[in-house]
Amino acid sequence: MDHDKFLEYVQAENKVEPKDVMPEDYRKLLVRQISQHAHSEIVGMLPEANWISRAPSLRRKMALLAKIQDEAGHGLYLYSASETLNNGENGADRDSTYQAMLEGKAKYSSIFNYAALSWADIGAIGWLVDGAAIMNQVMLMGNSYGPYSRAMVKICKEESFHQRQGYEILMTLCRGTKEQKDMAQDALNRFWWPALMMFGPNDADSPNSKKSMDYRVKRESNDDLRQRFIDVTVSQAEFLGLKMPDENLVWNEERQHYDFGDLPWDEFMEVLKGNGPCNKKRLKTKIDAQKEHSWVKEAAIAFAEKQEELVNA
């Protein structure tokens, strides 16, 4: 296959489809990225699930459940998109990518290793975490692989809804009692920096980005996306009446962007290494669920086999 021609093809904004010929490293890049994205949706259910039983009103409880359900749905789309890349040898199918995640060989977004400690965190997760995810996903709508790009279109719609819901939770708290507002401020303080780190390392420290950009999988740099997220989010925080936990955050008239302080990259690297507040807990929850329910799959297979025997008899 002509590699230059492929680059030319995707750079002319053409979509690659499952049956198209594609370079192996393009395929691998996508499988890794899409399945990681899928795992993030699935693991991302857990911090929020921590608050279902304690959600403070029926309406909020239902919205939260529905949101988590959407995330499971996103996981499904994404696993399907990843599976279209299966060429019989690269393990792009859902079971093997999921297994790799459970074994710690594949990653999910580090943000879900933070704890959801208060009801306000549910708001902050919607506002900031989904907000940051959307920045990334809107970009990915334009990515060169057809099934992934189409999955993103679907997902983005729901995510914007989730983000508004999260913001609305915080709005309610900020209009409530002092204790409620403090709860919102605490959540912002805890989630602000981790949310900014969702965009990945600074461009200077992100050597893999170039290939992604060339292949039109990624369309914008980490720093550009992060800057856009900050620019959009600051006024939202102001509207809530919350204070950003960054003393260096200030509008730069010349750049027409906000300047901001250094991110706590040491913490980021620690969490990535497995040393976050909930890394072990998240994986253990998923591993335990798999163990506990392994018999269900076996029973279903045994049942299906019997049915087949009946049909063939």
């Binding site: 911090p47 921590n50 304690r54 704890a115 959801a116 400690l117 208060s118 620690e270 040393n275 507040p277 909930c278 807990k281």
Partner: peptide
């Protein structure tokens, strides 16, 4: 051998288990 230690103790930052204890 790991010298990683969880942060937040003594500062009112808890694990996700704590809320259930209070319930």
């Amino acid at each position: 051998t790991s010298d990683f230690m969880q942060k937040g103790s003594r500062k009112g930052i808890h694990t996700e288990y704590f809320g259930y204890i209070l319930c």
